[in-house]
Design a protein around this nucleic acid. Sequence first.
RNA 1: UCCCCUGUAGCUCAGUCGGUAGAGCGGAUGGCUGUUAACCAUUAGGUCGUUGGUUCGAGUCCAGCCGGGGGAGCCA
Length: 463
Amino acid sequence: MNTPRIKFVLSRKPDASEITVHGWVRTRRDAKNICFFELNDGSCLANLQVVLDRGGSVADDDVKRLQTGARVEVSGVLADSPGSNQSVELHAQTIRVIGDSPADDYPLQKKRHSFEFLREIAHLRPRTNTFGAVSRVRNALSYAVHRFFQENGFLYIATPIITASDAEGAGEMFRVTTLPYEKIIATGAKVIDYSRDFFGKPAYLTVSGQLNAEIYACALERVYTFGPTFRAENSNTTRHLSEFWMIEPEVAFCDLSCNIDLAEAFLKYILSAALTECTADMEFFDLRIQKGIIDDLRAVIETKFARITYTDAIAELGGSGREFEYKPTWGVELQTEHEKFLTEHVVKGPVVVTDYPKDVKAFYMKQNDDGKTVRGMDVLVPRLGEIIGGSQREENLSVLENRIAELGLDRDAYWWYLELRKYGTVPHSGFGLGFERLIQYVTGMQNIRDVIPFPRAPGAADF
RNA sequence: UCCCCUGUAGCUCAGUCGGUAGAGCGGAUGGCUGUUAACCAUUAGGUCGUUGGUUCGAGUCCAGCCGGGGGAGCCA
């Protein structure tokens, strides 16, 4: 704990003093009289090369224990390295193997592994270059998310993870219960009495903190949430998880245009943070995972996001001459292929689609004067498609009440949501952004299951 | 939930027309005057996902089941 991290050691100038470092062996190369091995401690992508004179102070038996995966403590002197892959190296005087790693069955070898295989050994995959880099980027961006909002006067609000409101409608929900289902089934009961459940009514894991965030935005003006979110949808794709982290700002006195400005500034801030704070890791992603990703992100940072209404987007798609599997039709939600075509071929960069038909969007979106569309917006980016979805919220009490009635929703379930409009209502807006999708976009990792430490997906809750 | 692909050594894969199994990497052993995806030599390692079927004979053909991957829908 008190020994210097490798990241720090690598930045030091050689001197004669003895230092002690800890790390896991990544690779070892032996020559007749000399042995090289590399240590990694997760503090950075780079390894520290350790040089050991054979027949010196370290016994041969100990050298043989320096196998891939072993945890060791090394004391020695930092020196300039004649090799070309590192500027300094540690000339070992003593080594202590703290944890052996039998090489004949250690799953991680000094070679490339498929991500599919690594998912099966999620307890060991953070020891690889890729997952170390993903972890460091994820960490830096988590911090950057908070920093962005804190620097802009937002308050961090803890919205509930368990919700007794069945009113969210944003997807399938996981039920939270203490009812003994086995016993209930055994009695042959046809109906479950939720009044006897823990909360006295059905309860679920949250699918969004938005409605709760609106409460605080209507008091504190600028708020955000950043927490776990749960969707029980049976989705099996490279961009869905059952448990993921969502960022949801909510801002009073903010219309749709202001909301888009916020989303754009936010994304650019985060992308910049990745490039400036995780330079070595980003170079790794550029080299090994997604060629050109650094230039891609730089271009996004420097480009003003295009804006297009849904109606214009449909016209643009229809007139493109492109054959789509699903014909672009006004009144129908944009398909993934439409979104990707817009951002990758029409705009060739980030694009914000606004003013969707009200029937394809949620009840709370503010209605436009045309009576047909609502002030919703999706931010689309090349490679990924939709990365942010948001809207200006309906702040007019009677319009919102009518919409709830029109959709046949239970008005009583929204009593507090409606009271926000009854007392001191204010125009406000917000958006939601899946943190893992952001990490995917920034790193170029193809499967969302590889940008969260312990992915949960249908049929998959190991580790 | 639907569609497509896939399952062979620890890992990544090859395996032709159906005739009892191969490579590279990794491991072990030895060699090598500073290596860095080290290199050179030797060597061990397999119930071909699983159950059944066709056949004289199945890794190979067929069906079911299980696992993995990709795409779609839903969505963030």
